[in-house]
């Protein structure tokens, strides 16, 4: 990934900045450029989503995605945020056996990967069980 491609999504990756439509009040994440509900009559503004939600589904990934080999096996989940939208995210700092659908998680700031040993480090959000 080019540096610019990582960099331009930093607000969303670090701080969960999504969109809110001033017309229909729907909250969206990741940010959108056109409201799918109001289309051109929508008025999208940046919106800061709360970093909390609950697990809708999860899987323990053994065959890791490229760049994630050292973290395998890792838990990948879909988390429905308290503000409505869902995100795909790893669940960090957990025993795979302790995860259940419905568990509440907070999104924390973690390393996602890197562009090789001498490239930039990618940061972003990961879920962590709230207990």
């Amino acid at each position: 990934m080019s540096v610019a491609r990582f960099w331009r999504e930093i607000p969303s990756r670090y701080n969960l900045i999504g969109s809110k439509c001033g017309n229909c009040n729907k909250i969206m994440f990741p940010p959108r450029f056109i409201c799918p509900y109001c289309r051109r009559t929508g008025k999208l503004e940046p919106y800061n989503l709360r970093k909390k939600g609950k697990i809708v589904s999860y899987t323990v990934v053994h065959a890791a995605a490229n760049g994630f080999e050292e973290q395998a096996p890792y838990t990948l989940a879909i988390v429905e945020l308290d503000d409505g939208p869902s995100v795909t995210t790893q669940i960090t700092d957990c025993n795979h056996s302790e995860i259940n659908i419905g568990d509440t998680v907070e999104l924390v700031f973690r390393r996602m990967g890197q562009d090789g040993e001498d490239g930039v480090i990618y940061y972003g959000y990961k879920g962590r069980l709230l207990k």
């Binding site: 924390v108 973690r110 480090i121």
Partner: peptide, 16 residues
């Protein structure tokens, strides 16, 4: 530290 942690991620959680 976990495999996805470094001095920056640790600093961020403390700072938040």
């Amino acid at each position: 530290p976990g495999p996805d942690e470094d001095a920056a991620t640790i600093a961020v959680e403390a700072a938040r």
